[in-house]
Write a protein that binds this DNA or RNA. Structure first.
Lengths: 184, 184, 184, 184
DNA sequence: CTCTAATCGAGACGGTACGTCGCGTCTTACG
DNA sequence: CGTAAGACGCGACGTACCGTCTCGATTAGAG
């Protein structure tokens, strides 16, 4: 199960997928392309993943999972600003991967974030919004913001994006309808 | 150009597309299905649209365009709350169409909204956010919010959604970074 | 039926067909091409001929018929050499038409010749061969010989072709199995 | 290259083509029909032949080639009568194949015979006719004669056809213009 | 260090949808 | 009010990928 060849093949396929996503959207990536680019036989692809969606899922779960683990502890510490910063800093450090994911397959990233977000929010909801809606909107804004950021010719520093994120997602969510403004 | 048969064929195709989007995502809709469902010959489809994306584009442009025309005047009147309400009310009145569009092809709706939004904002930007980013985030939130709304088993009234929209999109956009909170 | 427009349309179509046959085989000629080339509406074509085969049939019947009428009397006069010469001379005088027909649609020419040949032979069989076979072989040789002739870069004179025709078709047909040789 | 599956698929397609040619002309045979009839996937057809013409070519080359190999040695032995007999006997033994080929696609058989005939005649021309013309006429007569033979309700014996062939093709070709008759 | 079993490549195959082409019919807008 | 223009349904074409399947050939890791 931990055969070296298996690990090598899968890593190669994941790598090949990320490289392809930099140049074209996921739907236009072909299993045959992936196999060829990663030096793996076409048939062999299916020995590892039942479909190209499964491969993308694998990649997305790994990357989004890491991002989540990096951000959540800080968020739990009630410091939303620091959490946003941690998130943006992490993405900044893995620019190429996240550029590929967000430009080539934003829907899948969103999907995976939603999954994790829903799990997480079940115990930490602090918003006046319907719980699920909060997650949906938060994830949408994160994905769009990061996507926008990563494709800017002269991207603003992570700190600035983090602040936008904090102001646009966290504050509205935590300000009750009757209040005069967000509580920092 | 105004041949009755042409109008009939196109209307049929648009209708068929909307019906299909209610039951499955756009990628799984087949041109053959569309042709069959609308009683139009398969080849005839291509006499009207070069691809199913073009058909979807036609539908999206029409619907999003109407929504936009309905909302913008109110928004220009500086009354963001009324604009949000107008938008939600319009969608509410065209529930089935918007359910289809948002559940089956949210990406295309987003795309078209972005297009119109970018045109519109060029002359009326009132946000502290980078202009394009404001549109991107606003559109994302609108699409997600409407999508969430329309698939709720017991959907809240339009007024409530409109208020959420106003609080989540308009307020953060208009509250300058230094301010203590949104200005009502 | 004798409306001038009708005659003009049909003549134009026949002419267009002959011109097309000079550059490509009949199967590759399109009704749309014919209509366009002869300045006739596509739909109009069908008012005159039910199919392109019918048009070709019309042309073939006319041309082969004329050839036949030209040749037969001489043949009936028992002078096979003169008949062959008449045939070749006629074709020589209508080179372009026959080149087109024989290079573009030899099968149809053969068909029509067979039809006329079978009619004619019913009353004048002078061959030891089974009657129908004689016609079949004779027609085949005529068609091939003329086809060969018309596509030679430096075509031999008609007289020479006529002699070949006489020697190859008429003589073997008229020499009974037991005879020592053809009777001139 | 010698994969058993390949051989099976091709043999099936050739067989299916021959069966279809018995009931309708080649132009009316559809690749889809061939694939279905031979139990081969439609797409698979193109993995073996670029077009139905290529498949017919394969069949024609094989059959005409065998006929040629069977006939030529005898012909080279200067015994034209025996060669004709060999040819007719061979066709007689492969009646169904040749009936199919000659009734459904005579043009292609003719084409292939021409090719082989031209190769062969280059070294053994014994005719007073222009070399190429001799082949053209000879092939035409052979094709027509065999075609006629195979579709007779009560076909004459091969020997009789062979004699006709000899008298109609070989004799005229070998009798010089000035001679009084064929030399037996 | 060897042997056995898992992994791999190669590629034939049956499918499904695509988008194109030409046919022949039928409708319609226009002169 | 007829007629050309052309929209239409149809069916075959040839292409691109998909996912399945059988082959051997290699190669890792357990014994």
């Amino acid at each position: 199960m931990t055969d070296a060849r298996i690990l090598r093949s899968r890593a190669g396929l994941r790598q090949a997928l990320l490289e392809m996503l930099e140049s074209r959207p996921f739907e236009q990536v072909t299993i045959r392309d992936l196999a060829a680019a990663s030096g793996v036989g076409y048939t062999t692809f299916f020995r590892h993943y039942p479909s190209k969606e499964a491969l993308l899922g694998d990649v997305a779960v790994r990357e989004v999972g890491q991002l989540h683990e990096m951000t959540l502890p800080v968020y739990d510490a009630q410091d939303s600003a620091a959490a946003c910063l941690a998130l943006c800093a992490y993405v900044d450090q893995h620019r190429s991967v996240w550029t590929a994911l967000l430009s080539g397959a934003p829907g899948y990233v969103r999907e995976e974030m939603l999954r994790l977000g829903r799990e997480a929010v079940a115990v930490r909801s602090r918003s006046w919004l319907p719980q699920d809606l909060g997650v949906v909107l938060g994830v949408a804004v994160i994905v769009e913001l990061l996507g926008w950021w990563l494709q800017q010719p002269n991207p603003p520093p992570a700190a600035q994006i983090a602040e936008i994120l904090d102001r646009v997602v966290i504050s509205p969510a935590q300000t009750p309808p009757g209040a005069a403004g967000p509580t920092p």
